[in-house]
Design a protein around this nucleic acid. Structure first.
Ligand SMILES: [Zn+2]
Ligand SMILES: [Zn+2]
Ligand SMILES: [Zn+2]
Ligand SMILES: [Zn+2]
Lengths: 163, 163
DNA sequence: CTTGACACGTTACGTTATTACATACATCTC
DNA sequence: GAGATGTATGTAATAACGTAACGTGTCAAG
């Protein structure tokens, strides 16, 4: 098996650049698709990109309200829904929370690794995993349409710290 | 690959026997572990076993209340938490709901196939899938502790009906 | 300039889950 | 059996998450 791309979430990296490049890709995709990355939507994406972790809708909402945007739940949910629809963010069901997508534009089924110590959320490229799921499902005659694969555990840094 | 065990949820089977045998296994496991399968807990497990689908906590609660048990949320949540801790049920994050485990006692990572037409929930044996996830995670230095794999789609029966 | 689509804002409500505390009950010790 | 202890059950109250319905502002097409 070829080594998978290292996922930035669990490793030191130039996060400003990481975040900026995601934003740029989002702008490009929005333009290309003729959808509007409005101030609220853009700001929500920025918030999700601040750290490699998932934010609850109300956490997002508080930040928005503090910055002069609306302070009612639909404001946050609409922006989040937009980002999810456009594949710029994912919902992490296990956490009732949302995380920026690290592979926008590339169709993919997300695989999340969630560190229970530092709360970092990494989106692994799970192509082989996804195929394994489809095969497994096919043996039952089941046709997969959407899937969520989420693992809770500990990242290498936190495991090192614990030892 | 050896064919996976067929999952009962999507196929005609003697469900009374299916359900009874799960209950019996639950009783045996509880005895073995010295934990108590009290009336509420047992009843909740029975409810989950009635059909191969997931029940919301409040759906469970309504049934309990109608039968003379407590009518406040903790009554349902505590019983459900107990069952989950003992590996007799799983939480289906995507549905905010709970399903009886079809492999109690055997340590396993649950893989759920959720039919969006008939709402049936099948727990597939996902050993290969689980290993694939662990391998994927390991390349990132991540140690998986708990995982949930959930697929939304259509079962063979519903797909046949649609055509 | 009008029209229509869309985004944003609000109010109000529905659903899911937890905290905190009181009561009942089984089990162990004496 | 009486008393102490831990566990299970019950309640009220509230927190956290999510949606429906409706009005207003903005902007581009006609
Ligand atoms: Zn980064
Ligand atoms: Zn993604
Ligand atoms: Zn059955
Ligand atoms: Zn199971």
């Amino acid at each position: 098996m070829p080594p998978a791309d290292p996922v930035p979430a669990f490793h030191a990296h130039d996060h400003a650049q990481c975040s900026d490049s995601m934003l740029a890709r989002a702008e490009a995709l929005a333009a290309e698709r003729g959808v509007r990355l409005t101030p609220v939507r853009r700001r929500v994406l920025e918030l999700l990109l601040e750290q490699h972790r998932a934010l609850g809708a109300y956490e997002v909402l508080d930040r928005l309200a503090a910055e002069g945007f609306g302070r009612q739940p639909p404001v946050a949910y609409r922006a989040l829904d937009f980002l999810v629809e456009q594949g710029l963010a994912h919902r992490v069901a296990r956490l009732n929370a949302f995380a920026a997508c690290m592979h926008p534009g590339e169709p993919h089924a997300p695989v999340f690794l969630i560190c229970r110590s530092c709360n970092a959320v990494a989106e692994a490229g799970g192509d082989s995993l996804r195929r394994a799921l489809e095969v497994e499902a096919a043996t039952q005659g089941f046709a997969v349409e959407r899937s969520s694969i989420e693992a809770l555990g500990q990242c290498s840094a936190c495991r090192g710290a614990a030892a």
